[in-house]
Amino acid sequence: MTDFLLVLASGITAGSSYALMGLAMVIIYKTSGVVNFAQGEMGLISAYITFMMLDYYGFGYLATFFWAFVFALFLGALMEFAILRRAKDPSVLGLMIITIGLEMILLGLVSWKFGADPKDMPFPISPFESIELVENIYISVLEVLTIGVATAVMLILFLFFRFSKLGVAMKAVQQNPMAAKLMGISTNRVLMITWSISSFVGALAALLIAPANMGPFMMWDPLLKGFAAAVMGGMTSLGGAVVGAYIVGIIENFFGTFISIEFKSVVAFSIIVIMLCVKPSGLFGRHYVKKV
């Protein structure tokens, strides 16, 4: 029983960072139809900027996090404005390939500047501090924070897309860019803001992952899992991505513990493949079928 709860708890914590990555991907997909494979590396850069400010230059936490988030917002806007918008006659496939290219460039930059060795990220909360949930079930404070942040982000995004004018406009741009322009919506600006918000959420994920495990490849796993989660949710559903993230986190931890630790990471891939084959609209897909 203890085993079971322990595995469940680690599944939920893993799920929380996947959820943040999944949300970041869904936000961009929702407005532009593009799967952003550079999502992880955008967060990675933000995390390394944070590391540099704290470790090299000795800034305080508050100032550092503030500037790191400003940087993340700026980075997102820059990616959209300077690169994706420049694509001539873009197809969704072409744009996705651009994001793969960006992913490699950003990864290369980080490896070149900081080296491939793992780093110790200073953080206000030690990843080794734990609290006892129930008897014998420990969970680290960092994990609690991750779950809390993921929940808050989820809630805010949900309210934003449901009730704010800008949020609804973002959905409008994705559903019909031409009609959105005809409403006077500046589609370019909306896309830029989308990338900013997404980059911010991705940076949050990276910052929460970094204290426990920091290196140039630290975002690969969360990106893949976040993607699997987003696919489970049908790519456009925020709630779906979150539920998907927890399912991926829990399944892979049970799989890793009770079946095979070596193949733990295969779980996420299998989920992507199975979902795309069986129900591409996602677990809760209620995509209305277009009348032709």
């Binding site: 004018k165 609804v168 406009a169 959905k171 409008a172 559903q175 019909n176 031409m178 009609a179 959105a180 005809l182 409403m183 006077g184 919506i185 995509h287 209305y288 277009k290």
Partner: peptide
């Protein structure tokens, strides 16, 4: 100037109310 395009082009996955609100975006 406002343009009702050929084939309606409503925002299919927004509610009727949200469609109208988008019309008043500016």
């Amino acid at each position: 100037i406002s343009y009702v395009p050929e084939g309606r082009q409503v925002f299919e996955e927004l509610t009727v109310m949200e469609n109208l609100q988008m019309g008043a975006y500016l």
